[in-house]
Design a protein around this nucleic acid. Structure first.
Lengths: 248, 248
DNA sequence: TAAAGGAACTTGTACAAACAAGCCAGCACA
DNA sequence: TGTGCTGGCTTGTTTGTACAAGTTCCTTTA
């Protein structure tokens, strides 16, 4: 059963995508939408709030709402799982475990993941048969056994872990910056040493806030772009100074 | 006048930050919060929704809400304006216009910014007296005059434009990837040619959805990191394949 | 002609009530 | 012991109402 406001949001999103409400135009008023969909104003507000959160629609008190952009929005699963993302977008993709071993967690890792033992996995991912991504993932001890049970050529770790132990990735925090390719990275990705890589470090947790994995993913420059929409009212993106305080 | 739900959200955020509600603990139920603050349940829900959107609190139907992380959240202005960000975080910062000229807009720019004439500005930004950022900004024709009126060493363009013509930046879309430094970039930032840079391309609009500027900002590797929190329910971050379709 | 004022409209905030849906612990039963 | 179910608890959805606050545009006035 899908909620009423979600169906209304879907219809509105579709109307924006198909040009019924072109970019720059005004959205119908809440009263008009409420009449059209036979719903209470509060329900319509919820639907529109979804689009505002997605950055598709701009809103401010007293003024009519305005269409800012067209639909995008990937699911969390699609962002989290390389395989699910690639499949949803119609790319040819693959993956291979290069190395894998258990070891004791360092103090920082123990604090971050909340376990004494961890599992290191180094994976290489391909898109359209080109190597594009080196994944260095550290799994918390309590999922290590399940990860080790996967086939080395397993395409979607996320889906496999859900099937085997019902694990659901629910929350993530991501740090994005640029680094130069080391010897190993360069060799795996087929680029020159020192060439630029887009790095995404992320930590993922379950619904209960229990950390599952910590990963350092490095994309070959030009292969992947991250995209975010934000506004005065909602700003998910944060800028931080790098590790080194210059001159300090 | 600050809204009731915002004050409640602020208090809850503060309680999380100060450890009254430690990470991993359960938040009080809506009914309890409603009683404590003498507010309706709906108002409390609005307050909690703010924290959920910020990624501080996890929420799912039937289960108690859980504290996921501590407060961060910069304002949109702080993300948009290098100067406001640096100042708020206590850094020494500076900026200098390197080059500036008017020219006719290309077809892509005309579509993106909605003007025939544009103003190119190349700026170099410093943090703690080190050059960290090369900004290549293209302003729409209707703000060109105001931008040209600014001092070459103007620290905050955002604030200056608000003071002079009341311009408010309200919405943005950001594309983040990694590129290698060209000759000019390398020279300005004091790094070797080909070394990695973190690139943030963004387009910013007013409340009315009118595009103001298009910018290509390149950070020296290691100087700045972008950070995003997301979840199954709210996912502002999107991954896109790069410009080149491999082998196509 | 231009500024000031105000009326109509639109979105934002707050409250109340009722039901739906999902979670979880504890109980009963095998 | 452990499995399955149930009932209470908590969050999610929807409706309705009232007022607050901001915008927009038209009218009035200097």
């Amino acid at each position: 059963m899908v909620a009423r406001y979600e169906r209304i949001a879907d219809e509105l999103r579709d109307d924006i995508l198909t040009g019924v409400h072109p970019i720059g135009s005004q959205l119908p008023t809440e009263a008009e939408l409420a009449g059209r969909y036979r719903a209470a104003r509060g329900t319509v507000r919820q639907a529109v709030a979804v689009l505002v959160a997605e950055g598709l629609v701009g809103s401010r008190q007293g003024a009519r709402r305005i269409v800012l952009g067209k639909a995008r929005s990937q699911s969390f699963a699609e962002l989290h799982s390389f395989a699910q993302w690639a499949r949803a977008n119609g790319y040819r993709y693959g993956g291979q475990v290069i190395a894998q071993r258990r070891r004791a967690a360092g103090p920082a890792e123990a604090a971050r993941l909340g376990t004494e033992e961890v599992l290191d996995v180094l994976r290489l991912r391909t898109l359209e048969d080109e190597p594009v991504l080196v994944e260095r993932t550290v799994y918390a001890g309590w999922v290590a056994a399940a990860v080790e049970g996967l086939a080395p050529g397993c395409e979607s770790v996320t889906e496999a872990l859900y099937d085997s132990i019902g694990l659901v990735f629910a929350y993530g925090e991501h740090l994005i910056d640029a680094v130069s390719a080391g010897v190993r990275d360069a060799d795996l990705l087929g680029v020159r040493r020192g060439s630029p890589l887009l790095r995404q470090r992320r930590i993922t947790t379950t619904h209960e806030g229990r950390p599952v994995e910590w990963s350092d993913d490095r994309y070959r420059a030009g292969s992947v772009v991250f995209s975010i929409r934000n506004s005065i009212d909602a700003n998910p993106l944060v800028r931080q100074a790098g590790d080194l305080r210059f001159g300090a």
